Simulated scan of single mutants.
Amino acid sequence: MDPDSVSPRSRHSTGVRLLVAATALWAAFLALDLLANGRWWFWLIPGLAPPLLFLAVPVTLLALAWTLPAAGSGLRRWLVPTAVLLLVAALPRTGLNWSAPAPGSAAAPAGPGIRVFSWNTEYWDTTDDPDAFYRFLHAQDADVYLLQEYLAWVRGTHTQIDELDRIRREFPGYQVVAAGELVTLSRFPVLATPAVGPAVAADAPWSEVFTRRKVLRTDLDVRGRAVSFYNVHIPVQVDTRESVFGRAFYRVVREADAARREQFAALERDTAANSRPLLVAGDFNTSPAMGDLDRLRARLHDARAASGDLYPGSWGGILGADWWRLDWAFTNDGAAVDHYAFVDDRGMSDHRGQQLRISLPHRGQDRCRWHVLESWCARHPRHP
């Protein structure tokens, strides 16, 4: 058939049918996401999508529905509110930072701050100029460093490295705590290192510690107060070396889901039982589009409230932008984040570093719990 012979009315009808179908498909996807996200191992795969997709799709549907001609006004009265509802339902998965117009902590700074730097180093300094690597760390001038991937990639496998002597030389006066691939450096005295997660024997080989210790808790004496710092690296959910058409790919996803759940559950239990001020930070391999962090985010305070970025991203590097936030930082009511930013990794990692300044409100100082009001609370602190 000659395309010119197709009537405008026929083309319009086809377009409307496609719009209705797209709206229905997106509604079905969101319904499945509500039911399966964070609950079904397979949903880790759709969860790999850029979180901004949850904004782009409903906004596009809304724009198309709004521009329907007068002949389709009856349908428009149905499609427009539907698209608005789908947009509202998807907003929590977009990763947008609603505090960006007026970033601030959820409590007024109290006393000298604690500078923290958390970073997935991507195989430590084994793929970089070691001197440049350590210069970058020194430039952060942090009181506490929470570093992940203290290891190397050799012949297709994660391999132990031994640089503790150099670390101590590079950071004199710091306490060094290492477990598997996790290293915590502190200017403050170490009080304890309680185990979090699956039990690992003291004499277990490094490979077992690497596999099972994905949370390193270090309790520090911060100017006379005990504060807990959790250094986190949740296992990645996919193996990109496997074909999506092979069984091995899905076996890896299912096994990764079990390992991730075990680590998340342990972290949630430990932080819930910990009455001390605490900071949880690291590479969670979890984007805002994934439900794995929902329980932790519901109980702790996301540091992004102190960020000025409307869309904080830490990983991706596609078209000059980081489209995924995989690195997170949280505090409880005992600690407040006064500054939070992602810093350029200078080509030494596929993750940007998290730079934080936290303060410890005075005992008894009220802390606003509602995330949507965190910026307001920072400017209008209440005192007992």
Rank of each mutant, 00 (worst) to 15 (best):
T184N: 01
R295A: 09
S105M: 07
H138N: 02
L52N: 00
L34Q: 15
P189H: 06
Y230H: 01
S349C: 02
A108T: 12
T240L: 11
L79P: 03
R187M: 00
D131C: 02
Y340H: 14
L293K: 07
R166M: 05
G291A: 03
Y311S: 02
G180Y: 09
Q365L: 12
L319E: 09
A102P: 01
R357P: 02
A28S: 04
Q175W: 14
L68V: 00
T211W: 15
V88P: 00
V6I: 14
R304D: 14
V177W: 09
H371G: 12
R251N: 10
L61Q: 06
D165Q: 12
H233F: 06
T82P: 01
D4K: 14
R261K: 11
D327G: 08
V200A: 06
V57R: 05
V59P: 04
Y145R: 04
W78H: 10
F342M: 07
W78C: 13
R346P: 00
R352F: 09
E262T: 10
T127C: 09
D33A: 15
R251E: 14
L64F: 15
V280G: 02
V227P: 00
P205M: 04
V236S: 11
R297A: 15
P112Y: 07
R223K: 03
A139G: 05
D309F: 09
S314E: 02
F245W: 12
S73M: 08
V116E: 07
A201I: 09
A303H: 15
A100Q: 00
S7A: 07
G317C: 06
W40M: 08
G38C: 04
Q355D: 13
Y340Q: 14
L34R: 15
L310K: 03
L164V: 07
A336K: 08
R9V: 12
F133K: 06
L216V: 03
E163Y: 08
V88A: 06
P81C: 11
R379F: 06
A90N: 13
G113E: 03
D333E: 13
F29G: 04
A36G: 10
I318Q: 09
N231K: 10
I167N: 05
L373F: 10
A266Y: 04
S99V: 04
L68G: 02
F117L: 11
T286R: 06
G308E: 00
R77H: 09
A132W: 03
R357E: 15
G111I: 11
M348T: 01
P277S: 01
D239S: 07
S314D: 05
L30G: 00
A329I: 02
L182H: 04
R357I: 12
F171I: 03
L356C: 07
G313C: 05
G313A: 00
T121P: 01
F264S: 05
V343D: 11
P235T: 14
A329N: 06
E149M: 04
R346L: 10
V59D: 07
W66G: 14
L147K: 00
D165A: 15
G334R: 09
V183P: 01
V84D: 01
L48F: 08
F210G: 03
R251I: 12
D294P: 04
A266W: 10
A142L: 13
T23H: 05
R212M: 06
F210P: 03
V215A: 03
T121S: 08
